[in-house]
Amino acid sequence: MITVSTDGSCLRNPGGAIGWAWANHDGSSASGGHPSGTNQVAELMAVLEAICSHPGDQPLVIQADSQYAIKCSSEWVAGWKRKGWRTAGGGPVQNLALIQSIEAAIADRPGPVSFVWVRGHRGDEFNERADELAGIAARGVRDGVPVPAAVVAPEPDVLF
């Protein structure tokens, strides 16, 4: 089983620079950003990037502090799809392209994807790491120093 924590950051909601990040519990991570967005877009991007970065048949557990991202990705999506991508009130689904991309990534992944909510900013090591990386990415984009969305491998074990 692979466990990954995700988080998003928006420096001014809406319209400010955003950052997203995932932190695999094995120590690897990735982050990136965009000059403008919302906190919800950042959270959804983190989920999408985590799924796309972890292909294969091993079960993938995504831990997130965003109820919105979790419910969009796992609960509400089926009803929206059934209703022609309309909400219960008949309005358009917000962030539709990202939600459809998450749905497709989950469907294309041979292994199952599940979600677990964690309380943010409460000392969970991996949630805090994802939060830190997302903030760094958002500030980097804002300041013109974008952080590449590259995977950072875990430190190798040193044997003495």
Rank of each mutant, 00 (worst) to 15 (best):
Q40S: 13
I51Q: 12
A64T: 15
G27R: 08
R82T: 11
S53L: 07
I106H: 07
S29E: 00
V116E: 15
G140C: 03
T38V: 04
Q40M: 11
A97V: 13
G56M: 06
S29P: 04
P112T: 15
R142G: 04
A78L: 08
P55C: 08
A64W: 04
R139C: 11
G16N: 01
A105M: 08
C72P: 08
W85Q: 06
R142Y: 04
D7L: 12
D65E: 02
R129P: 00
S114Q: 15
R86P: 00
E49N: 12
G144I: 12
A30V: 07
R86N: 03
D65K: 01
V141H: 09
P35Q: 05
A104I: 05
G140H: 10
H54M: 14
L48I: 02
R119I: 00
Y68W: 08
C10P: 04
N127I: 11
G140E: 01
G120K: 10
Q63R: 12
I106L: 04
G111M: 12
E49G: 07
P156F: 09
D7I: 13
P92R: 14
C10V: 01
I51K: 06
P156T: 13
E132L: 12
P35K: 01
S36E: 12
Q67C: 02
E125R: 15
D7G: 08
A30R: 07
A150C: 02
P148Y: 05
A149G: 15
Q63A: 13
A149Y: 00
V116G: 06
G37R: 04
I102N: 10
A137L: 07
M45E: 12
G89A: 15
N13R: 01
A64M: 14
P146K: 09
P59M: 11
L96Q: 14
F126T: 10
P35L: 03
P148K: 06
S66M: 03
Q67S: 09
P59R: 08
P148E: 06
I136D: 04
R12Y: 02
V145M: 11
G91E: 14
D157E: 09
T38A: 05
S53I: 07
G16T: 06
I102H: 04
P59N: 07
G84L: 01
I102K: 12
W22C: 13
E43F: 09
H25G: 11
